[in-house]
């Protein structure tokens, strides 16, 4: 497996080296590019003065608050629609009419209703997170082993107990997959909203670096945002494997 690791690293490392040498040999002065060594220095100083950490906290706070809000709504609706087929069929047109609205199109509405800041960003992230959770939860609840449902009828569980003790535990691995996908979407939407208009978080910080013509800082933020995205994805994948193992191996199509 060592050979695989080496092969995986060969391309990025050699690209960075070539770029470093090229940038140094032509004494690069650019608003859009900087040698990797300068990017590392910029990243280090931004970490040292805490600017990047504050921005990361703002972005992740908005992303997770939106994920929590939208995910809860999606989860509740998904369970409801998954259990009650008639309601699902009645709501079909309404849901299919709202779902394709690109989340970012709601930005101007959220802007005039909520103003700049956390609330507007959380609202947009929340809207984006409702749909994957709703669709996957609905599918998971529908496919709960029918015999489990028969058991719950035989035990005369109340509807609330049926959801709490039978449906949610049985569908939990796939609900986790839904939340994992939604978490990725939440981060993307949060950063996008910040880049487009909202003056907080990592997105605003990278835009400020660009407008200040600090290419090294801008690329340092880009690298950091990539690292956050990669870390979030890897962490959630690991959690899923630990918590559910093979039970969560389902197709990830939302």
């Amino acid at each position: 497996m060592m050979a695989d690791r080496v092969k995986a690293l060969a391309l990025p490392v050699s690209l960075l080296l070539i770029f470093e040498i090229w940038a140094r040999s032509v004494h690069l002065h650019s608003d859009s590019l900087a040698p990797p060594s300068a990017i590392v220095v910029a990243l280090w100083s931004a970490l040292a003065d805490g600017a990047i950490l504050t921005a990361t906290r703002d972005t992740l706070l908005s992303a997770f608050a939106g994920l929590f809000l939208g995910g809860s709504i999606g989860l509740a609706l998904g369970i409801l629609l998954g259990l009650l087929q008639p309601v699902d069929r009645l709501m079909e047109v309404t849901i299919e009419a709202i779902r394709p609205i690109p989340s970012i199109a709601l930005l101007p509405i959220a802007l005039i209703a909520l103003g700049f800041g956390y609330r507007m960003e959380i609202a947009i992230v929340g809207f984006a997170c409702v749909w994957p959770v709703l669709i996957l939860t609905r599918a998971a609840v529908r496919e709960v082993e029918p015999r489990l449902m028969e058991v719950s009828h035989a035990l005369r569980l109340s509807p609330a107990d049926r959801v709490r003790k039978i449906v949610v535990p049985a569908a939990l691995p796939r609900i986790f997959v839904a939340f994992r996908l939604a978490a990725g979407i939440a981060l993307i939407v949060a950063v996008t909203v910040e880049i487009a208009i909202n003056p907080i978080g990592l997105g605003a910080a990278i835009m400020a670096a660009q407008q200040g013509l600090q290419a090294d800082l801008m690329l340092a933020y880009l690298f950091w945002i990539g690292l956050i995205g990669f870390g979030l994805n890897a962490g959630l994948n690991l959690m899923q494997a630990r918590l559910f193992g093979r039970a969560a191996l389902v197709r990830d199509d939302a």
Binding site: I188, T192, A196, M207, G226, G229, L232
Partner: peptide
């Protein structure tokens, strides 16, 4: 892959 692609916008603007 998990990079929020909109983060490339400032670089493209530069």
């Amino acid at each position: 892959r998990p990079l929020p692609v909109s983060a490339i916008i400032p670089v493209a603007i530069a």
